[in-house]
Nucleic acid binder design. Structure first.
Lengths: 224, 224
DNA sequence: CCAAAAGTGTTAATCTTACACCCATGA
DNA sequence: TCATGGGTGTAAGATTAACACTTTTGG
């Protein structure tokens, strides 16, 4: 590679902030950085775009390599292109965010890459500008929740109203009034009531709900 | 350049959908495509990213070359990276949108590039995926208007309430009730009343308003 | 004095918020 | 039978939507 800046190749990478909601906590998929500097530091998984790949192709590769499953919901987030964002040279990163449920989406974490879901509340520093990415993704999700439904990709297929409330409370960082939450969600008209829960919990059994796929998808596309 | 896809260089371009609001019409800056295929077709101005440039640097260049002014508000919109989006080879385009006022921002349209503001309602076909970009930009602006102020970059420094209403009506594609619009905007608390208009129009003279810079910027950052 | 554009208030309907107790179940 | 978590309704307050006439001005 010549030293003439004009002929130097600009690298294009794709990265994914993959979120899950597990045990009332939101978590993001992190891997260990493989090269110096900051070898071993936590980072968001990413990969270089090859000539014949679409952005979505790289997303699939990243997902396959880190969790062994590429059938995951992702949305484009932002392009990060600051001049000195990466010590290896000039790179543009096109970041995506994704949502996953650890029960229904089969996930095999790649130990070699140090892949794991890291709790966001007690958040460790990520290398490079990766904290900025996660922050932006969380803000995007938060805003999106105000005019589109959330949950299909994060919850199991059947869930209770309290679980859905917990998810909303967690991502929006606010408490809800049970009665008002229920009323509003049901009015939004993307849920279907199923039957009583069978789970062995203490106390009264809860009604299970599922998302009505058509209605959910419509609202997800066009907003409320 | 070798034929081995692995070593082929992926081009990174930056493009800007630059909007103005003029004579009650929203318009977007278009230029004429210089190379075949589709030579002469209308396109959104764009430019290749060089090794030592930030994304914002390219935005400035595009603006300077086409309108002779780079002091323009821009926001990142989306990365477009479909495999066959551009006939010259693999390119990733990182698109921005910008807002401008033709009276207060000095604009010299570059005739050599065929730069002009094209009315959006009677919209001509743009080459490549550029119509998609403009649509996405308009949707983004529309959504943004619901929780942040709009106008500072599109209107002259002083303007009437009816002009602001017209802008909102145009970008949101809906009619407003004069009284309700006025009330809501004034409650939002980012305007300052100035004095009576002196313009030689027919009918009663209107009160002039300006944006309170601090309040406008705060709401613009954090939303209502 | 009239045509054109600006400006102004009130009411009904809707939506949002706050709030506390009973129910079903398993231990 | 009691501790645990699930489920339910109402009223006050806030917000939004619908609606038509008067004012100012230049021609």
């Amino acid at each position: 590679m010549s030293n003439n800046p004009e002929s130097k190749k600009i690298g294009v990478t794709v990265s994914i902030c993959l979120f899950c909601y597990n045990n009332d906590e939101k978590k993001v998929l992190t891997v260990k950085n493989e090269k110096p500097p900051f070898k071993g530091a936590l980072i968001i998984p990413n990969k270089t775009l090859k000539y014949n790949q679409s952005l979505e192709d790289v997303c699939s590769e990243i997902l396959n390599e880190n969790i062994g499953n590429n059938d995951i919901y992702v949305e484009q987030l932002n392009a990060f292109g600051k001049l000195y964002r990466h010590p290896e040279g000039r790179t543009i990163d096109i970041s995506f965010y994704g949502l996953i449920n650890l029960e229904k989406d089969k996930v095999v974490l790649n130990k070699n890459k140090g892949a794991e879901f890291t709790n966001i509340s007690s958040f460790p520093e990520l290398a490079f500008d990766h904290n900025e990415m996660v922050d932006m993704a969380l803000k995007r999700i938060k805003r999106r929740m105000k005019y589109r439904p959330l949950g299909k990709n994060l919850l199991p297929d059947q869930f209770t109203m309290n679980e859905l409330e917990g998810l909303y409370a967690s991502f929006l960082s606010k408490k809800f009034d049970k009665r008002n939450f229920r009323r509003r969600i049901i009015e939004m008209d993307f849920l279907r009531e199923i039957k009583k829960v069978q789970r062995n919990t203490r106390g009264r059994k809860a009604i299970l709900y599922e998302f009505d796929p058509k209605k959910y998808n419509n609202y997800s596309k066009t907003g409320f």
